[in-house]
Amino acid sequence: MKRALVFFLLILMMAPLVIADDNGEENEYEAGYGGLAALGVGLIAAGVVYYSLTKRKLVIVHKKSSEWGFEIRPEHPYMTIFGPVYPLTIHHVLTITGTLLVFVHFFSCDNYAGLTGGTGLAMGIVLVLLNLNGFIGRYIHGKVLLAAKKHDRKMAKKFVGILGHWKKVHIALAVLFAILLAIHLATGD
Rank of each mutant, 00 (worst) to 15 (best):
C109L: 14
V48Y: 05
L43I: 03
G98N: 03
R56T: 05
S108H: 13
F106R: 05
Y112D: 10
Y50K: 07
T95E: 02
C109D: 13
P87W: 12
A113P: 01
G98Y: 02
V102Y: 14
D110E: 12
L101W: 05
G118M: 06
S52N: 07
R73K: 15
L130M: 10
A45D: 04
T116M: 05
V59L: 15
Y78P: 04
V104Q: 10
K64M: 14
E71Y: 10
I44N: 04
I125G: 08
I60R: 01
F106E: 04
V93M: 07
G120E: 12
T97W: 01
E75N: 04
I125H: 11
G118T: 06
N111R: 06
S52I: 02
E71T: 14
L53N: 04
V93K: 00
T99V: 07
L100A: 14
G142W: 03
E67W: 11
G137Y: 00
D110L: 05
L94Y: 02
D110Q: 11
G47W: 03
N133Q: 05
H91Y: 10
E75A: 12
V85H: 10
V93P: 00
L127W: 00
T97G: 09
I81L: 12
H105K: 13
T95K: 02
P74T: 10
V41W: 00
G98T: 01
K63C: 07
G47L: 06
H62K: 14
I140N: 03
V126A: 11
G69E: 13
G69H: 08
F70E: 09
H76M: 13
I60S: 01
Y139M: 12
G118Y: 05
G40V: 02
S108R: 11
Y50R: 05
F106V: 04
N131H: 05
T54C: 08
L101K: 09
R138H: 13
I60D: 03
S66C: 02
I125E: 07
I44E: 01
G124Y: 12
L101H: 08
G117Y: 03
Y50I: 00
V126Q: 02
K64E: 12
Y50D: 09
E67G: 06
E71F: 12
V126D: 00
G114C: 03
V61T: 12
L94I: 00
G83N: 10
T99W: 06
Y112Q: 08
K55P: 00
V59R: 06
I60T: 13
P87L: 09
M123L: 14
N131S: 06
V61P: 01
D110F: 06
E71C: 15
V48R: 01
G83M: 03
